[in-house]
Design a protein around this nucleic acid. Structure first.
Lengths: 121, 121
DNA sequence: AATAGCGCTATCCTTTTAGATAGCAAACCG
DNA sequence: CGGTTTGCTATCTAAAAGGATAGCGCTATT
């Protein structure tokens, strides 16, 4: 009996990490809806809050921080009025388009397959 | 004042649903590692448990059920010995390859961008 | 003066997810 | 007989995600 080959495992961990990263960036109920809201142009906090139905300020704030830290959203403060804070998608966020499109296409295909009940046979 | 235009929203909900579906299918700490384990051929429950380090039986069982329900994994029971249950990837799971590759590529790109600190500018 | 809008943050609570531990029936091994 | 392997399931707990509510400093409107 030889030792099981673990090379695979460490190799795959390396392959898995970026996939995990990507999934994490998009994960959660709200990240995509927020991104979609911003594809129609830059918006203020309360505009996003109004557009993404059901989200609370607390969660929106946190999600915007996440997206900003991930370089997908740019936060801009003008100290004119009380304050005006606008959020906009960054150029980097454009690179997500392919990923999102791949996910969408697969989601549609998957739904068909599941509904057909053919379970991949 | 007019009612805010909600057409966008419902349209986008429709677009978002398959994306959500796809993300859900891959989500969680263990789905990808399990899929990877099975790419090297069909395996028994305890083999997967051994290969996917850190997972508990309870969680593995649930994840395999999820994957099976989603038609990505096929469960086969032979009632020979105590019982022999094998799990294997289905043809449908192959269709995930493009998605996974898109995620992986983006994950790598994303890591570069974040490390450069250029935050998408 | 009272109210409402702005962009948050703080506190609390519920739901979801996952880890830890144990057990079970059947059957083989010694 | 006692112990082990197999493929789970049950119960309990911990941690994470997300919702509800409230409040803050500031100002323009009423």
């Amino acid at each position: 009996m030889e030792k099981p080959v673990e090379l695979n495992h460490s190799e795959c961990t390396g392959i898995l990490r970026p996939i995990r990263d990507a999934l994490d960036v998009l994960n959660g109920k709200w990240k995509l809806p927020i991104i979609v809201a911003l594809t129609f142009g830059e918006k203020r906090f309360s505009e996003i809050a109004r557009e993404v139905h059901g989200i609370t300020d607390r969660v929106l704030s946190k999600e915007l921080q996440d997206l900003t830290m991930n370089g997908l959203v740019k936060r801009t403060v003008e100290d004119t009025f009380p304050v005006k804070v606008t959020y906009a998608l960054t150029p980097h966020s454009k690179s997500l388009d392919e990923v999102i499109e791949a996910l969408r296409k697969w989601g549609v295909l998957h739904r068909e397959i599941i509904l057909k009940g053919s379970s991949g046979e």
